[in-house]
């Protein structure tokens, strides 16, 4: 009797200690999300879609002031994104755009539990294989959608920290349409260059063209203030609604955001101005679709990491009602 109990205890202990991170689906998913926000790292990653390949350098630091990240394109003209908590600066060539006000009061990690339950509802989450990415041992996780209205995702996370090392978006025929993968990575913040975190701000004066864009102040509005409605695939929930100013537009646009935990759909409604950019149609970049159409006196723009069919269906369903 006693040896049997000892054996059971030993077995339990060995399985429990072997890989605690990968025991429970939601637990390691949580670890992955935490790692992407709380880990200090720097490295080089490759972004690929269609026949386009692009290499970027990334630094991510989490300190007492919060989260800071810097993304620098290594090819072509200057492209750089600096993010400090809610604020984002975007440098393209010699123009600088500042964006701020990311989801007031919905900051990480408060958003996490809700997002995880959404993810679990809409995707079949499964660990598949183990392998190596950028020299690190990684576990692969597949997010298989429950319908054809969204893409499947495959992610490789660092087995120890849960940091995402590689991610792929797959279409309904399991073809990779977009890939993000580290090719070099240093985890841990001891030797990371942090000079850009504060030194960056005065640089704005040197830039020829500076803009400030974002949601209008106190823009987080009650449930459905604009009256715009849309039919989104089941599993998507409205996570934000606001009015925001866009470049070259006189009137601010209404911006609705829906999420299924992994993919998001944005709907922009603007008054029709007849400018050069107001051409309807579908444009795409890897997993991202942008579909624009004219509806009455309005220009509708749907943006999302969803198949073209979904973006079009959503755009076709947008209507003003309920007021």
């Amino acid at each position: 009797m006693k040896p049997a109990i000892a054996l059971i205890v030993a077995l339990w202990a060995s399985t429990a200690c072997a890989d605690p991170l990968w025991q429970d689906d939601l637990n390691w998913l949580k670890t992955m999300v935490f790692a992407s926000h709380q880990t200090d790292y720097s490295g080089v990653f490759v972004y690929r879609y269609g026949n386009h390949v692009e290499t970027s350098h990334i630094i991510h630091v989490a300190d007492n002031d919060g989260e800071h990240a810097r993304l620098v394109g290594m090819d072509g003209p200057r492209r750089e994104i600096v993010r400090s908590n809610d604020q984002v600066w975007c440098f393209i060539g010699d123009s600088k755009i500042k964006l701020d006000g990311r989801r007031n009061g919905r900051r990480f990690p408060a958003v996490l539990p809700e997002q995880l339950s959404l993810l679990n509802e809409n995707y079949q989450i499964k660990q598949t294989e183990e392998g190596r990415v950028a020299g690190f041992h990684a576990h692969a996780v597949v997010f298989k959608p429950k319908d054809a209205l969204r893409y499947a995702h495959r992610m490789w996370a660092h087995s120890d920290s849960g940091l995402l090392l590689k991610s792929e978006v797959l279409d309904e025929r399991d073809r990779v349409i977009e890939q993000n993968s580290f090719i070099q990575l240093t985890i841990g913040g001891n030797n990371i260059d942090r000079s850009w975190i504060k030194a960056d701000k005065p640089e704005a004066a040197k830039l020829s063209h500076t803009e400030h864009r974002g949601p209008e102040h106190h823009a987080e509005l009650p449930a459905n203030p604009s009256g715009w409605l849309a039919d989104v695939p089941s599993g998507f929930r409205k996570v934000a609604e606001m009015r925001r100013s866009l470049r070259d537009k006189k009137e601010p646009a209404t911006h609705l955001v829906f999420s299924d935990g992994l993919a998001s759909i944005s709907i922009f409604v603007e008054a029709l101005e007849g400018g050069q950019d107001d051409r309807p149609g579908l444009t795409s970049q890897g997993a991202i679709q942008v579909y624009r159409k004219v509806s009455g006196d309005y220009m509708l723009t749907v943006v999302g990491e969803v198949p073209p069919r979904t973006a079009m269906q959503v755009a076709d369903s947008v209507r003003l009602g309920g007021r």
């Binding site: 999300v33 992407s36 984002v88 989801r103 991610s167």
Partner: peptide, 20 residues
């Protein structure tokens, strides 16, 4: 950009998804 700010994928995928 406006979409990316609210993209839930960014929570799982981190800042790298801003490359889009």
């Amino acid at each position: 950009m406006a979409h990316q700010e609210f993209s839930s994928g960014a929570d799982v995928q981190g800042t790298a998804s801003y490359i889009r």
